[in-house]
């Protein structure tokens, strides 16, 4: 699968841009948190698209962002 680029995103309507980012993020999140993957992806999609592209290129940053999202999600659900 070719990497998602800013120009590929820019060619799509806003709603579809999030969809494209979600499709890339979801499998990565699924590998870490299978039971929460859909919710975590939904949370991360609130982040700016430009930052999401950076996260997709940086597994370490993505990792810490996912952990951050899990903490927020768990706090929210209590």
């Amino acid at each position: 699968q070719e990497p998602l680029t800013a120009s590929m995103l820019a060619a799509a309507p806003p709603q579809e841009q999030k969809q494209m980012l979600g499709e890339r993020l979801y499998p990565l999140i699924l590998a870490m948190h299978p039971s929460l993957a859909g919710k975590i992806t939904g949370m991360l999609l609130e982040i700016d698209n430009s930052e999401l592209l950076l996260l997709l290129e940086s597994p370490e940053s993505l990792h810490s962002k996912i952990e951050e999202a899990v903490a927020v999600l768990q706090a929210h659900q209590i």
């Binding site: 309507p13 979600g22 999600l73």
Partner: peptide
């Protein structure tokens, strides 16, 4: 409570129904 529905859940292969952008 509406807060229970946050965050919207992403499902692969389905159109995203959350916020298009902030």
């Amino acid at each position: 409570s509406s807060s229970v529905n946050w965050p919207p859940e992403f499902r692969p292969g389905e159109p995203w129904k959350g916020y298009p952008n902030i």
